[in-house]
Simulated scan of single mutants.
Amino acid sequence: MPLATPEGHNLGTLCVIDRVPRTLTNTQSDALRVLARHVVTQLMLRRQLEWSKVIEAELRASEAKFRNTVDRLAEGVFVVDPLARKIIDANLAVLAILGYTKSEFVGRSPEDIMAQEIPEVTTRNFSRIDSELATTGRRNLGRKCLRGKDGSLISVDVRITLIPNDGVGLQAFVIRDLTEQCAYEDRLFLYQTELENANAKLKQLANTDGLTGVRNRSAFNAKLLEEYDRANRYNHPLSVILMDVDHFKIFNDTFGHPAGDEVLKAVGRTLQETARSTDFVARYGGEEFAVLLPDTELSGAMVLAERFRRAIASVSWDKRAVTVSVGVSTSTKQTPEASKLVQEADEALYRSKKNGRNRVNHSNLSSLSIRNTIA
């Protein structure tokens, strides 16, 4: 079996060798094909790990840049977790202003250093963020007094800046001249945005197929477990569609891998355009695609599967007609686990190929009932 990457590059061949000539059965050929897919999957995971290391290095560099910038600010900055009512971080300037070491300062309650009450951040309602802060991300509290480590009162201007931090909603207290601070706050938000963007890139890399732009197998497996648990909890139906581009190897051999890549991109695009907003389209591996259908019973799944098949067959293909064979499965009370749905859909897909390709089969229906269901 050839070991081909999702982009169509052949890396080698997986072979079965014996001392005497043998002929593989269909089951043995399928097993060898599955083993080849596993080998390629491991190779792709290794490549994805290298990409992840690059993104992680970018994250670390951005974090170091952010920390260096905050520590060099003339203004004092300390970060508060409003739910825990604790100071979780501080820069060098605020430590110098108040006379604390970092170990002495971090972990304190904000009320410990406030010589006068700030209504928005008292113990009684510290977790409340007023409308201005929630809307603009900033709030000017004006002139306030803080208490230093030695008990001295220090007059400062206080401005609160909301740090999104993936929805946690931390609060950065910036103390000193507000006119100079605005420029530094903009830089702080800029670096925070860089961190968020780097995180988004990493998440997208982990969940998106690089060639077709649809979700990858890892994302599909995670979504399948989530929807399977939800379907069991609320007694809702769940269906899975697996489809394979017919005679794709012959297409690649005849027209070349770049042409094959364009076919896979077009198939992914067509599936996305045909799917409902609640459906989950993914590239399962090689020329195989999968669609997860939440809250979809058997008859509805068959209608959608046929719609996908017809949509791909009706595309104006450049080289030659392209079709897909489709297998469908639907959860029942007897479905023991999520992976069983994929297994049953794969078995139905095999029957579609065996019976002539470019057709739909369901794991729980005969060919006659399939025709009646679609009709």
Rank of each mutant, 00 (worst) to 15 (best):
R85L: 08
R138Y: 08
M114W: 01
G285H: 04
E180H: 08
V174L: 08
Q48F: 02
A57H: 04
I370H: 09
F280N: 05
S277K: 15
E111A: 04
L225E: 12
A375H: 15
R359V: 11
S369V: 04
A96M: 05
T161C: 09
V121H: 05
D229F: 04
I160D: 14
L178K: 02
R19E: 15
F220C: 07
T69L: 08
D253P: 07
G213Y: 11
I87N: 00
R138A: 01
V360D: 09
A311I: 03
A282W: 13
C145H: 11
E185V: 15
R138E: 13
K149P: 01
I370G: 15
H38L: 12
A313T: 10
K102T: 03
R310A: 11
R276G: 13
F126Y: 13
N364W: 04
D246V: 03
I370K: 14
P294K: 15
T373G: 11
E297V: 00
Y350H: 09
N125G: 02
V303N: 02
V245K: 01
G142K: 00
P82Q: 07
V315G: 04
G8E: 02
R187W: 02
C145K: 03
L341R: 10
F280I: 08
A198W: 02
R67Y: 09
E337Y: 02
L271V: 11
I118A: 05
E306R: 11
V174I: 12
T101F: 03
P110W: 12
T274N: 12
D209F: 00
S331I: 00
D30L: 14
R359S: 14
K249N: 08
A57R: 13
Q48Y: 07
E226V: 03
T41V: 04
R33C: 04
A84D: 13
L298C: 07
R46N: 07
S62V: 15
L264R: 10
R309F: 00
L92A: 14
H257W: 08
S131A: 14
A375N: 15
L153E: 14
S363Q: 08
L14P: 12
R320Q: 15
N10A: 14
G12K: 10
A64N: 15
Q192C: 06
S352H: 06
G260P: 09
L141Q: 07
G256H: 08
Q204R: 15
F189S: 06
N372L: 09
L11Q: 03
Q192E: 12
S363L: 06
T135A: 10
